[in-house]
Amino acid sequence: MKRTSFSHWPCSIARAVDLLGDTWTALLLREAFYGIRRFDEFQQELGIARNTLADRLSRLVEERVMEKRPYQDEPRRHEYVLTEKGRDLFAVLAAMSRWGDRWLAGEEGVPVVLHHHACGHDAQAEVVCSVCRVPLEAEDVSMRLGPGYPERLKQRPDVRRRFGLDQADPGPAGSLDR
């Protein structure tokens, strides 16, 4: 079955989901942040089928999220190391963890805690404004067309409605679906 691709959609969420949207990819990244680097270690930790693992690792290397480095010559073996692009996904996984802690953790509490070495405290991910550092909430932001939005799509009625282009002051979006 052919996979639907969102890699060319004019939306960074769609593009990220295209790369990270299957179960195994997010879990591979989680394991990489735990320090797992070798194919057999990923396979053992996750119980993932070898062909699926090979496919996901190849895609992460192709997308430059991980780098494939030789660590043994006879027989030739490789390890998979997060690149800067891959390490930058930590914030995404930490935000997913916080959401899961809030909405999916059992009565016994959260399963994993992030410990921040710099201050010595346990911490949670928080999405904040890059300028004023105030936490971002859906009701306090609106989505606007960015410079990379394709000109050919800007006049479509659904796009104009989504971004409030026919209104004088669109106000806060309240959700990403706007």
Rank of each mutant, 00 (worst) to 15 (best):
M1C: 02
M1D: 11
R3V: 09
R3T: 13
T4H: 01
S5F: 01
F6Y: 13
F6S: 11
S7N: 12
W9F: 01
W9T: 06
C11L: 06
I13N: 03
V17T: 14
D18Y: 01
L20M: 15
L20Y: 05
G21D: 09
D22H: 06
W24C: 00
L27G: 07
L28G: 08
A32K: 08
A32H: 08
F33R: 09
I36C: 05
R37K: 13
D40W: 03
E41Q: 13
E45D: 07
E45M: 03
L46T: 10
L46G: 05
N51V: 08
T52Q: 14
A54M: 11
R56A: 08
R56Y: 01
R56C: 07
R59T: 10
R59S: 05
V61N: 11
V61C: 15
R64N: 13
V65R: 09
V65N: 07
M66A: 00
E67N: 06
K68N: 10
R69H: 06
D73F: 01
D73N: 05
E74H: 08
R76F: 01
R76A: 09
R76W: 00
E79L: 05
E79D: 13
Y80V: 02
V81C: 13
V81K: 12
L82N: 12
L82I: 09
T83P: 09
T83F: 02
E84R: 08
K85P: 09
G86T: 04
R87T: 14
D88I: 01
D88T: 04
L89G: 06
F90E: 11
A91E: 14
A91L: 04
V92T: 13
A95L: 12
M96K: 11
R98W: 03
D101I: 02
D101N: 10
L104Q: 15
A105W: 03
E108S: 02
V112Q: 13
V112E: 15
L114M: 11
L114Q: 12
H115S: 09
H116M: 08
G120E: 08
G120T: 03
H121V: 01
D122I: 01
A123F: 00
Q124Y: 02
Q124C: 00
A125C: 04
E126V: 10
C129F: 02
C129I: 06
S130C: 01
S130I: 07
S130T: 05
V131T: 14
V131E: 15
C132K: 08
C132E: 11
E137Q: 13
E137R: 12
S142P: 02
M143H: 11
R144F: 02
R144I: 04
L145R: 09
G146T: 05
G148Q: 10
Y149W: 04
R152D: 11
Q155S: 11
P157N: 11
D158N: 07
D158G: 00
V159Y: 02
R160S: 02
R162C: 08
G164R: 10
L165M: 09
D169G: 00
D169M: 00
P170M: 04
L176S: 06
D177V: 00
D177F: 02
